[in-house]
Amino acid sequence: MAGAIAMRRVVVKGRRATAESPTVRRILIAVVTLFFGLFLVMPLVVVFHEAFKRGLSAYLSAFQDPYTQHAVYLTLLVAVIAVPLNTIFGLASAWAITKFSFPGKPLLTSLIDLPLWISPVIGGLIYVLLFGRHGWLGGWLIDHDIRILFALPGIVLATTFVTFPFVARGLIPLMQAQGSAEEEAAATLGASGWQIFRRVTIPKIKWGLLYGVILCNARAMGEFGAVSVVSGHIRGRTNTMPLQIEILYNEYQFSAAFAVATLLCALALLTLFLKFIAEWRAARQLAAGSRS
């Protein structure tokens, strides 16, 4: 009798007990679609709409501006320096954290997260206090005629600071989930550290690594707060793409501002796409691994 009641309860009108009614479902899906539509899709659409509103030639002419060209060049240059540095750091720290046990590991992982939870403005501020004219090393730098602030080194430093967690954070959970059995097997077969890393670890983590690098790159190219503080906004010299967007926008050159923005948006979309692929591949790999 009790069993019969339970049966009836679990399947209500042929619907599983662990599912909401179709009406509730539809409402919830509508809420989420509206929320995402307003906050995620529309901003994306508006960037491309504003950029192309005056036609393709207006869009292309935005890139004729030598200052804009220089901003694109500088952004690429900064990324080319900062991203490899952070990739090596990400690999090294992920290896240290996932392959060994040592005291202070939680502290180290929190430190790696630091740029994610402090204001990017602080990421710029700390370097100004260090290298600025009235900073700790300012006088010495002026005496030796070394320019860090309002120049490439400062921009690279601030960018590197803000983006260093991304590769490491992508790799650490992945490498933890995969475990070290294959690396240990390689060690018993006589492989050296470098051989283990290159022949066993890299193939296992390549998709996660690729996503981490691409995300790090997107954030490096798009960094605004920290770079804004250390760059000095010198047109044609220290303006990166996001800073150039700000200037164009504040000068009411909306089409040009949004045209530059489309480049960074395309990069962001590529990043999301690669994340999608990387997660799919990682899930497949883990599934294949757990079957063995």
Binding site: A181, E182, A185, T188, V200, S292
Partner: peptide, 18 residues
């Protein structure tokens, strides 16, 4: 381990899946 080169067969095999 890599100097000892003992032949080790892991419980979960630890094959290189790639």
């Amino acid at each position: 381990a890599y100097q000892r080169r003992a032949g080790f067969v892991f419980q979960s095999y630890a094959l290189f899946n790639h």
